[in-house]
Structure formats: structure tokens, C-alpha cells
Write a protein that binds this DNA or RNA. Sequence first.
DNA 1: TGCTTGTTGCGACTAAGTCGCATCTAGAAG
DNA 2: CTTCTAGATGCGACTTAGTCGCAACAAGCA
Lengths: 130, 130
Amino acid sequence: MTTQRRVLIETMQEAKEHLDVSSLLALARKREPGIDRATVYRTIEKLKKFGLVDELDLMHMNGEKHYYEVKPKRDHVHLACLQCGQVEEFSSPLFEQLKREITEQTGFEILVTRLEVGGRCSVCRNSNKR
Amino acid sequence: MTTQRRVLIETMQEAKEHLDVSSLLALARKREPGIDRATVYRTIEKLKKFGLVDELDLMHMNGEKHYYEVKPKRDHVHLACLQCGQVEEFSSPLFEQLKREITEQTGFEILVTRLEVGGRCSVCRNSNKR
DNA sequence: TGCTTGTTGCGACTAAGTCGCATCTAGAAG
DNA sequence: CTTCTAGATGCGACTTAGTCGCAACAAGCA
């Protein structure tokens, strides 16, 4: 457990939005200026492997970046509005049930899941009906 | 509707596995040698926008490529085995029900979905227990 | 306090994807 | 059948994301 890793984990925990690598790096550098891009990638890699963070694409709304969040207790869906860019989260027992069904019917052991949805959020739907 | 687009679409339809951009390009060039990488990207972009193809990441098993498939009638889950690299598909009424629930409860209009699962397939689980 | 193993920073590199621009072509209009 | 034009293509240069080897460094155990 090095200073850099501690800083990165704290930064992710305190962030209220999903961070991509470059904003995570920028924020982390406010605390620990010398921290390197490669360290961020290597740390994320480890955290993913240990199941401590989840990786998101958010439907590639802004280029090909990846976003990260500390793994929640309960998996949730990310609803990405393709119009305004807002990201909502949604969780449901149905999702848990679906995962159970997958394991039962296919024998596949689930380690990570990623359910992303792209579309239009209710705000955008109301502001411009079409 | 240009020759290039026709070739790209046919290539995707006839492929039995999920293609990334470079293998799609390679296959398409067997029919239409001059076809360019930029054209592939631009065509995929259009096809995504029209809802004719789906984009997959397959949990980034082999680098950061994206994979494409012609959009199926019924959305399905991709189960990517992190050990052997095999990709299974799975569809279920529960998934449809979950999508309906999302729309009802959040007012979010769903245009695309992507549900990917990473783990160990039944074959790998049996061959090496744990 | 010293030692060892794993981590970091650095810089150079690869791979994925984008863009501007000149040329070309599909297919509508005459 | 010929002409015309909007939109598509090919090309090449570029950007951005992510990786890697290596020497220097630090965590934390003895």
C-alpha cells in the first residue's frame, strides 16, 4: 500500500461523478503532484482485478475513454442520455434475478457485469417531444 | 448505398464471430481491395446511429478493441470467459422485463443496451475447479 | 537499520480512432 | 442517355488512449 495508491483510491471514493483516467490523474495530482499516468493505469488494473472498482464506457458518449467507480454493493445499470450526457443509475431485483438465471442456465460463473443503456432521459424527452 | 457499404454490411452478416475493425477491414478487402480504414469507421458510425449494428467491448479481453454485430431481433447478453476467451450469448424474457421496468420507473427512453458479463464459462470451471 | 521485493516515474512506443481535403460516384433530374 | 450535385471515399497526417522496459525508489519485515 503506497502513498500513490491511497491517494488514487481516496480520490475515486470522494468523487461524486464517474472519473476517466485523465480527470482522475488531474485530481490525484492535487494531493500528490508527482503521480504518473502509468501508475494510474497500473493501479486501476489491480483494483479491477481485485473487484474493487468497475469500469464503464458510458456508451462512448465523449470519445473512447473509460470511466471508473468504486464497486457498489449492489450492481446497477447506467442510463446514459445521448442528448444531454447525463448519467443516471438504476438498480433492481430483476437484475439480480437475471444474473442468477444466467448462472443457473449456462453454468457461467459471473465475476463482473456491465449493463449500460443509451437513450433519452425523461428531462430531454419532455423538453423536446419528438 | 455505395459498394463499400454493401460490402461491409455483407461481411458483417456472413461473419460467424464478432468482428473488430481491423478484421472487418481485412475481410472486406478480400472483396473490395481498395477499401479504407476511415470508411469502415464512418460506416460503422452510421450503422450504429440507425440502430443496425450493436457495439461490444467484450470486457476488453484483448486490448481496447470494439466488436460489432448486426443487431439481433432480441437483445442478448454476452458472456465473456476471462479464462479461455470464449463468448456465449444468452437471452431471456427477464432482460426484456428489466428494460420495461427501467422505462416505466425512470421515464428513460431506451435506444441501445449493452449487457456484458465477465467470468468463467462452464467448461473452464469444470476443467480446473477453483 | 538494512534488505528485498514490488512500485514508481520516465520516456519512448503502439494501437485505436479522427479529420481535412481533393477526388469520385450514386442516383435524381432533365 | 447525359448532366449535375450532395454525399461518400481514399489518403495522409494527426490526436488520444494505453503499454512497456528500465533504472531509481520506498514499504515494511527481519
